[in-house]
């Protein structure tokens, strides 16, 4: 993580704020996204995530503050900045009466000249080659979302901004989109900025995160660092049950919260989960299952004082 001090800041906001009437939808946001990050912008519904993303993508004019992308002021160098950025805001909407291919051709050509091969390649990455020349009105929500990612890829952006990219998708669709996000970051070296209210999504895809509530930034940093600040709760299933409970009661760094029906709920000091597992096994306790218990949810609820709508 020390290497981050040398990393280029791709996106930086300074006191970014947006006011609708008397209500601040976003207030004094100072975000920093580094090259290669999968940066997750986490917050409950209505926290100001979409408002912030819309300001970053020039759909909304900030009431105060500024946005710097690739070291350039967004307001002054809009065209140059947006030629290296692509995004999907809320859900991916397309011209339903046009084919997937034509949609990509039109939208891609607004950034730069795109060749037929490039369009087909982008469609192949998201698995839509066979539907390339069908009208988008025949596509499912998941297919439109994948097409959204294809149009983002087409312009070969360095920064991709995705507003709740898995919203409304079935589990299979969610898995596919998350897989694509990881692939874009790991294999294509793109920086991803995504918002989500799905806490599990952050754990699954993000390297860094920022938490927002009621328009204000609550925390920002590495996902692992932010999570390690608080003791983590686990659910374990063990055999024999009684001797395991007795053993756990002797450990000062473990707090047994509940023990019934063969399942133990416990809180462990940060970074000592594997040590606990070893301890149980070395004391002839068979560990049948051992999984973290809504870690991020707990973290989130703590820092937002239970005001969220999770």
């Amino acid at each position: 993580m020390e290497a981050y001090s040398n990393k280029e800041v791709v996106l930086r906001t300074h006191g970014l704020s947006k006011k609708f009437g008397k209500r601040w939808a976003a207030r004094d946001l100072n975000l920093e996204v580094y090259r290669g990050d999968v940066f997750c912008f986490l917050g409950p519904n209505g926290a100001g995530k979409s408002t912030t993303i819309r300001m970053i993508l020039t759909l909304l004019t900030p009431s105060a503050g500024s946005i710097e992308i690739f070291g350039m002021d967004l307001h002054k160098h809009r065209g140059a900045v947006l030629s290296r950025v692509c995004g999907i805001v809320e859900k991916a909407d397309f011209y339903l009466y046009l084919s997937a291919y034509k949609n990509l051709e039109i939208l891609g050509s607004m950034t730069r000249r795109v060749q037929k091969e490039e369009i087909m390649e982008a469609l192949e990455v998201v698995g839509l080659t066979s539907r390339a020349f069908e009208k988008v009105k025949t596509f499912s929500h998941g297919m439109k979302q994948r097409l959204g990612i294809a149009q983002a890829l087409l312009t070969k952006p360095q920064l991709i901004i995705l507003d709740e990219p898995t919203a409304g998708l079935d589990p299979q669709g969610m898995k596919e989109v998350r897989g694509l996000i990881k692939e874009l970051a790991n294999e294509k070296g793109m920086t991803i900025f995504l918002s989500s209210h799905l806490l599990s999504e952050v754990e699954l895809v993000a390297t860094r995160m920022a938490v927002i509530n009621r328009g204000e930034l609550i925390a920002q940093g590495f996902v692992s660092e932010l999570l390690d600040k608080e003791p983590i709760e686990y659910s374990v299933q063990v055999s024999p049950f009684d001797s395991a409970v007795e053993l756990l009661g002797k450990l000062t760094w473990v707090e047994v919260l509940a023990a019934e029906d063969g399942k133990i709920e416990l809180r462990v000091e940060p970074g000592r989960a594997s040590e606990l597992n070893r301890f149980l096994v070395s004391n002839h306790v068979e560990v049948l299952s051992f999984y973290p218990h809504r870690t991020l949810e707990d973290f989130f609820l703590k820092i937002t004082e239970g005001t969220s709508e999770i």
Binding site: L57, F94, M110
Partner: peptide, 14 residues
């Protein structure tokens, strides 16, 4: 209405 304005206005053309 169709939401495509969001796609259109995040492109480089002003």
């Amino acid at each position: 209405t169709s939401g495509t304005v969001r796609l259109l206005l995040i492109r480089p053309p002003s």
